[in-house]
Design a protein around this nucleic acid. Sequence first.
DNA 1: CAGTGGTCTAGACCACCGC
DNA 2: CGGTGGTCTAGACCACTGA
Lengths: 254, 254
Amino acid sequence: MADERARESVSRKIEKKPLALHARIQRDVEDRIVSGEWPPGTRIPFEHELTAEYGCSRMTVNKALSELVKKGLIERRRKSGSYVRQPEVLSAVLEIHQLEREVRALGLAYAFRILQSCRRLASDEDRQRLRLDGPAHVRHVKTLHIAGSRPFCLEDRLINLEEVPQAETADFSDAPPGSWLLEQVPWSAAEHRINACAAARAEAELLDLKEGTPCLVIARRTWNAAGSVTHVTLTYPGDMHTLVAQFGPSARLS
Amino acid sequence: MADERARESVSRKIEKKPLALHARIQRDVEDRIVSGEWPPGTRIPFEHELTAEYGCSRMTVNKALSELVKKGLIERRRKSGSYVRQPEVLSAVLEIHQLEREVRALGLAYAFRILQSCRRLASDEDRQRLRLDGPAHVRHVKTLHIAGSRPFCLEDRLINLEEVPQAETADFSDAPPGSWLLEQVPWSAAEHRINACAAARAEAELLDLKEGTPCLVIARRTWNAAGSVTHVTLTYPGDMHTLVAQFGPSARLS
DNA sequence: CAGTGGTCTAGACCACCGC
DNA sequence: CGGTGGTCTAGACCACTGA
């Protein structure tokens, strides 16, 4: 029963919100999850344990954990406890990323080919892509994803070896870099930038297109509590891919 | 027709969950909001009124309403009550739609020009865009959005006059159709489809591009409890626009 | 000032499910 | 069976803010 309410104030934003107790519990647990301290599969403390730790009633703890369920961070099983979920990097609102699943959903066979792979000290451009300030080592992998017999998507990925050192020696013969990374990295956040541009000569050749063909380009940067993890650029032939995103007060209609 | 009964029983809720009380309250209130029965600005019943109506404790009502706050459907003011919010069709995760705001955010002057506007019985293509089965009247408006002195975006919009009859006579001299619609229609859901394609001759001319220039095309269909409201296609020169979407366990990083 | 929502409590009963 | 979470209650105190 150490003192609780004292240790706030310092590190966070200039906001001076004395944070409700249930919100503080929620934040504490969430921090431990996104930091990787409690990796996916971990059982988090029982409600009655948190009740004791924070010296509050069960409803308060329950409110905090229920919100984490709604956020998708944990799942709860009666009699068993509450567990950290596997992160699903793809948000349900923007269906991308799982290239293999995506291709199979089209009823086509999926394959991939590593075009190029190297390690190096991050160049200026690399650091910009990963939003790094200092020097860092990176791994750079280019992959061609194939649907049926036709090129489907070109992937250009940078992995920050400071955060994911095991990527230094990984060979991506079994799984493409994206799938591999999903299993290595705990909960992370991502930002996407989507635009259209013309296929340059090299890209056009790899994707079996005419130079200048419009392509949908999705750039995603992923980071977690420790720092930038990866930056990937996915280039799709414009006519082969449509991003779909759905919003609304509820999922209550076609 | 033979198995209409069977189809009915299947098509409705497959799951028969006796829905917790707080969930039922939440759904009831949400239904009245999305149906337009309680339009934006409406004060919804006080907690103690709902407490009486449902014969439950205040915490149960509070839980339901708190969740609607998190969903963004209502806002609550102490001493005053709880109010239905103005819908923000744009979800925070995918920043699009408010073209004027978007342009001004770039530090440029915003203007728009109605290129074409007509009413008609929905053609097959119209019905497909709006996902309509039966006959319907629609209004078709093409608008050019301008940032500074350069074309910024081409908008091709279809409005379902069965759902928004007041669009029949609206002239869009003050506000472009998108902004106008925002004020007419209660809470709605939307689906986006995003891809890249080459500017056709007519588009290229209007956007001041060379034919074949890659463009980012965003198609959005909007509907509410009553049916389809509008379908709009926004065409951006590929180099003038980037969609940004951010996901993650929390907004807790750059 | 008084009424609203924000939060919390100390219980309670129940459904579920692993042991 | 017993332990877990799911839900709910009937209060309580407080902060905020509109009148």
